[in-house]
């Protein structure tokens, strides 16, 4: 049996208490909600925190509040299954629903939280291995070693942002609330991420993810398309998140984000711009896909070959936009 390393455990009942413990323990401490990302990592000795702070008892970190008209507040410790079952999410933020529904397996979604997925450790198949395996490659830059084995010349770790919710939250323009002993700050979801496989979050180690706010859903349509080998268990090797706001038939605003092709979600700015002011037709979609796919720069550290993954970006952007569809097309895409 693979066992967890030893640690001290705290289960505070309030956010303030949690922030205080975190501050007090310093970088030796980590917070844990569902544990589906952290515990496997700990069993493989990627992280061996001296102290774990469980967030399960903090009611203020759970739940979905608000309305499509005002926007939603989602507690980061909300279990993924509960979000899947939320009509607010499913009907008004279908792209988010699809992203959540595609995470791992139904059983894992009964345990994992959205905050956990947002903060998901970057992944790399030189990193996500047992301690003994990693010792055989003399470890890697991300943990216990110096070299990035994906690209030994690289001075930055190339581990992949593999969160399904990250690209869609970026596309929705979600805001993230971070709380620490020092106070609270709110940032754009896209500013949470950094293109560095090691230091992949701008969240400080003393900060706790305390809330996710989604803007009003009115007139936004959304979708999320995910590429992976199997329809369960597998992390994305590509995720395409699309949010489009229409003014009549015309695209008023478009947001297109790529997941799992870099160390952070990637915004396809040119493709977005190409859609604005036009109808969503086969032609405009094709153009957006053409503009988006050079941004995907997969490296050889996930399942599938990187060339094929890059090629698929074009196809999946097209699919995601087709799925969003123009207003009035088959519903379930939002408002």
């Amino acid at each position: 049996m693979m066992r967890l390393p030893r640690f001290r455990y705290h289960a505070p009942a309030t956010l303030g208490e949690a922030a205080a413990i975190l501050q007090g323990e310093g970088s030796q401490a980590m917070v844990v909600a569902g544990g589906t990302d952290l515990y496997p990592n700990m069993k493989r000795r990627h992280q061996t925190p001296k102290t774990l702070i469980g967030l399960r008892k903090i009611d203020a970190l759970r739940g979905v509040k608000g309305s499509p008209a005002r926007g939603l507040w989602i507690g980061p410790a909300t279990i993924l299954t509960d979000l899947e079952e939320s009509a607010l999410v499913r009907e008004h933020y279908p792209g988010l629903y699809e992203a959540i529904h595609s995470i791992s397996t139904p059983i894992l979604r009964n345990m994992g939280t959205i905050g956990g997925n947002i903060c998901l450790d970057t992944r790399c198949n030189y990193y996500n291995q047992n301690y003994e395996w990693r010792r055989a490659i003399n470890f890697c830059m991300k943990c216990d070693g110096d070299t990035c084995w994906v690209a030994p010349g690289s001075d930055v770790c190339l581990a992949v942002s593999s969160s399904d919710t990250a690209p869609i939250l970026c596309a929705f323009g979600a805001r993230i609330q971070l709380v620490s002993k020092k106070g609270t700050r709110t940032i754009e979801a896209k500013d949470l991420y950094r293109r560095d496989g090691i230091d992949y979050l701008t969240k400080r180690s003393d900060e706790i993810l305390a809330g996710i706010t989604l803007p009003p859903a009115a007139r936004w349509r959304s979708s999320y398309r995910k590429l992976r080998r199997r329809e369960a268990f597998d992390f994305p090797v590509l995720g395409v998140a699309a949010c489009v706001r229409f003014d009549g038939e015309i695209v008023a605003e478009a947001r297109l984000w790529l997941g799992a092709v870099s160390m952070a979600p990637v915004e396809a700015a040119e493709a977005q711009a190409a859609l604005v002011g036009r109808r969503l037709t086969e032609e405009t979609i094709e153009e957006a896909a053409r503009l988006a796919y050079p941004l995907a720069k997969p490296v050889d550290n996930t399942d599938f070959g990187l060339r094929w993954r890059k090629e698929m970006t074009r196809h999946f952007v097209r699919e995601a936009l087709l799925e969003v569809g123009p207003p009035g097309s088959p519903s379930g895409r939002g408002n």
């Binding site: 693979m2 515990y39 496997p40 493989r44 009964n110 345990m111 268990f233």
Partner: peptide
């Protein structure tokens, strides 16, 4: 490691992975 489902039990009436539950 949460990659197979073999250790599934019901916790709070929901199937969960006992290998990843403290």
């Amino acid at each position: 490691l949460g990659e197979c489902g073999t250790c599934t039990v019901l916790l709070d009436g929901r199937p969960q992975l006992s290998c990843l539950l403290l």
